[in-house]
Simulated scan of single mutants.
Amino acid sequence: MSFFRRKRLFTILISLIILVGLIGFSLRDREELSSVEEFIQDTVGSFQNVLLRPVYYVRDIVGNIDEMKHVYEENQQLKENLSTYQQKLYEVQELTKENEALQAVLDKTEALTDYQPIQATVIARSPEQWFNQVTINKGKQHGVEKDMAVITASGMIGKIQSSAQFTSTVLLLNGFDRSNRISVNVDLPETDSDAKGFILGYDDAREQLLLEFTDSYEDIALETTVFSSGLGGVFPKGLEIGSIEEVTTDQYGLTQIAYVKLSADIKELNHVIVVDRLLTSIDEVEESGDE
């Protein structure tokens, strides 16, 4: 073995001994570090601080972005939940409104003891007569015939203009003219009698019916209810039409007239009742008498 090789081996052994000694020295429980240890610790700490600061900064940015993403997702979920809640609330309100309307129609149907009520639903408004005609889902197969009165829980809305097998067209009161006049009675409580007249049409400007009296009456009060009289053979007696809004005379000052506000809202129609009068015809009465 050469001198240099022995020297290198000796140096390595001495270094290992010193290293083991230093490790053992550093592992001892001591209150204070040596100057060398303090220097190494401070150097390493400073190096870690410089090296890890960008890492922490990037980590914080990534964390904030991830948190913002979660906040956005939660916000979107809350918006969806709010939209669903509003939709459900709207559906509940519509169902409540629908239920009240159906209950009112049922109550009105039960009250029509003198007639044969046929419940129906409005399914369309006629394009050519959007404001004064509607189509219902009942027709001849259900007993609906031309000229039958049509009402809601609030009052009369018109009559059957034409009837097919399964649907019918209703002419609303705002489409009435002198050819579709209605014989009516107006209560006069102070005289225990009725004022008589005819509904002759509809005033589009006032959105009210025009009532012409057959005589002059002094005791007609405003907001008095107008009912069908049953005369004329088309409309049954006692169907509410509207209330008196104004009493005046025609342009010549000869005929007493009144403007009548409709009891039913003909602009918002859903469930209606077709009133079958169930009257016995004159021919049937005569045939019964001959027997």
Rank of each mutant, 00 (worst) to 15 (best):
E240A: 10
I160Y: 01
K108D: 05
A153W: 04
V170W: 00
G197D: 03
E245S: 09
L106M: 15
P189K: 02
T96W: 15
K88M: 13
T152M: 03
K159W: 08
S15M: 13
Y57V: 14
E268L: 09
N99Y: 08
E73K: 11
D290E: 12
E268C: 14
L27I: 11
P54F: 04
E31W: 13
E190N: 05
F213R: 02
N185Y: 08
Y217D: 03
N64W: 09
I14T: 13
Q87A: 09
E286F: 07
R206W: 11
Q86T: 15
M156G: 01
Q77S: 14
Q93D: 12
R28S: 07
I157D: 00
Y259V: 03
S263C: 06
L211P: 00
V36D: 08
S163Y: 03
R53T: 15
F198D: 07
F176V: 08
V55H: 07
L9K: 13
D250Y: 03
Y56G: 01
L254S: 14
D42C: 08
Y90A: 14
H142V: 02
T11H: 12
P127F: 06
R30S: 08
A205D: 11
V44D: 10
F131T: 13
G232T: 06
E240N: 13
E287L: 11
V285S: 05
E38I: 15
R206N: 05
R5C: 09
A111P: 10
R59T: 15
I23P: 00
G230N: 00
L102R: 03
G158N: 05
K146F: 04
L172K: 02
D147E: 08
E38P: 11
G63S: 12
Y217C: 02
L172T: 09
A264K: 04
K79S: 14
E80H: 12
V58L: 12
S228I: 02
T121A: 10
T225Q: 05
S281L: 14
E94C: 07
D204N: 06
D194V: 15
L262Q: 01
L210W: 06
L19T: 13
G289D: 11
Q251D: 11
L171H: 01
S26Y: 12
K237Q: 07
K261F: 08
D250H: 06
G233L: 04
T249Q: 09
F10G: 12
D177C: 10
A149F: 01
N174G: 06
V186S: 00
D203S: 05
A149T: 02
P54L: 06
D250R: 03
F4C: 13
P127G: 07
D250I: 07
A120M: 04
D276S: 12
I182D: 00
Y202E: 03
K267F: 07
E246N: 08
D177V: 14
G45W: 09
S35R: 15
F235N: 06
A101C: 12
D215Y: 11
Y90S: 13
Q48G: 11
K140W: 10
T121P: 04
N185Q: 13
T280E: 05
Q77E: 09
A149K: 01
E32Y: 13
E98T: 14
T135F: 03
E128V: 15
R28N: 15
R206P: 03
G201Q: 01
I273D: 05
R6S: 04
E291I: 15
A153E: 04
H70C: 12
V226I: 05
T225M: 09
L22G: 09
I61E: 06
S26F: 11
V226S: 02
T109N: 07
S179Q: 14
